[in-house]
Design a protein around this nucleic acid. Structure first.
Length: 326
DNA sequence: AAACACATCAACCGCGTATTC
DNA sequence: TGAATACGCGGTTGATGTGTT
């Protein structure tokens, strides 16, 4: 709309914006820029980054493809079930559904729904086609796509009655074949903010003092595989390849590629960030040793790490248990 | 091997809302 | 207070890939 009005009143040549698929060079350009400077105002991103795209296109590309932490590949059965359950109660609120599926974008979920799940639902309930609205059917969830397990049963009840009593585990964790109680017992105490909605984050059940800021983009370190105990063993960074971390020693450090990020927790309210070995990228060229409050850590490449001030954070950090993402 | 149909998904578009001036 | 601008969301499109005849 803004485009329309400005287009109308001006005869000056409007910038020629490229359309269509993004080239690897464009991707690299956008990625480098956002990682280094943050996106700020999206309309200025292509100008500053030297891209022949409009800001909207850059934003979309970043969110749906370049943003760190995205999970690629097939949807798991758990994710399918989550989508079905949430769609049943929320309808086409793809962005809200995406909040419950870490690493998945609303666009991806939407596409998956239209190309796959919708048809399966239609097949599964041909007789129900006369029922006018699905949102009143929360107490009668759709037939499962996979054989039900006790956990599935509990989860259906649990997830279809939003707001959730406990923050949902990321789907990659929920693949653990364990009873719900065990799942609850291994709920992570630290999560990427983007993996939880603000509502969930503010839920007082498990994480009484979680404070996720809207600016939290602490997702340059991606979630990885989780072992049988819920501990992260290996991680895959979509842009930088495989990295590893040592969760069990209290998040003392995370390495990825030739970068090493040392995080030292001093007490409940502070931590130190430093001892990064030098990487080839300019934005990590300066090692730093910085005393920081626990709420907010911004590193030299502009990435903001936010942590919560938890009563029991120290024990969790030092013990390693329950700490899953950083 | 070619033609066609269908499926997938990245990207665009339009609209509503929030924010800024 | 209203206009301009920016952002985010959901619907839709179209290029490309894959399967079928």
């Amino acid at each position: 709309m803004a485009m329309k009005s400005s287009d109308k009143k001006e005869t000056k040549p409007k910038p020629k914006h490229r359309k269509g698929l993004w080239s690897p060079d464009e991707d690299q350009c956008l990625r480098d820029y956002v990682l280094k400077h943050g996106h700020g105002c999206w309309s200025s991103v292509p100008i500053n980054a030297g891209l022949q795209r409009n800001g909207k296109s850059c934003r979309l590309r970043w969110i749906n493809y370049l943003r760190p932490g995205l999970k690629r590949g097939m949807f798991t059965l758990e994710e399918e079930q989550t989508i079905l359950t949430l769609h049943n109660s929320l309808g086409n609120k793809w962005s809200q559904i995406a909040l419950h599926l870490p690493g998945r974008t609303d666009n991806e979920i939407k596409n998956y729904w239209h190309s796959y799940l919708k048809k399966r639902v239609a097949k599964a309930e041909p007789a129900a086609s006369s029922s006018p609205k699905r949102e009143v059917e929360e107490s009668t969830p759709l037939p499962p796509l996979v054989p039900k397990t006790p956990l599935d049963e509990e989860k259906l009840v649990h997830e279809s009655s939003l707001p959730l009593p406990v923050p949902p585990q990321p789907a990659c964790v929920r693949t653990l074949d364990s009873p719900l109680e065990q799942a609850r017992a291994t709920l992570p105490r630290i999560m990427f903010a983007e993996w939880l909605s603000q509502d969930l984050a503010n839920d007082q059940h498990q994480n009484p003092t979680v404070d996720f800021g809207s600016e939290c983009i602490s997702s340059d370190i991606n979630v990885g595989e989780v072992d049988a105990f819920g501990f992260m063993q290996h991680q895959h960074h979509p842009q930088m390849g495989v990295m590893s971390s040592s969760v069990s020693d209290g998040l003392s450090g995370v390495t990825f590629g030739n970068e090493y990020c040392n995080l030292h927790y001093n007490d409940i309210n502070s931590c130190s960030v430093g001892s990064r070995t030098l990487g080839s990228d300019p934005y990590i060229a300066q090692p730093q040793q910085q005393q920081l409050g626990f709420d907010h850590v911004e590193d030299e490449c502009g990435l903001i790490f936010e942590y919560f001030n938890g009563d029991d954070i120290c024990s969790h950090l030092n013990g390693g248990s329950d700490v899953m993402y950083l």
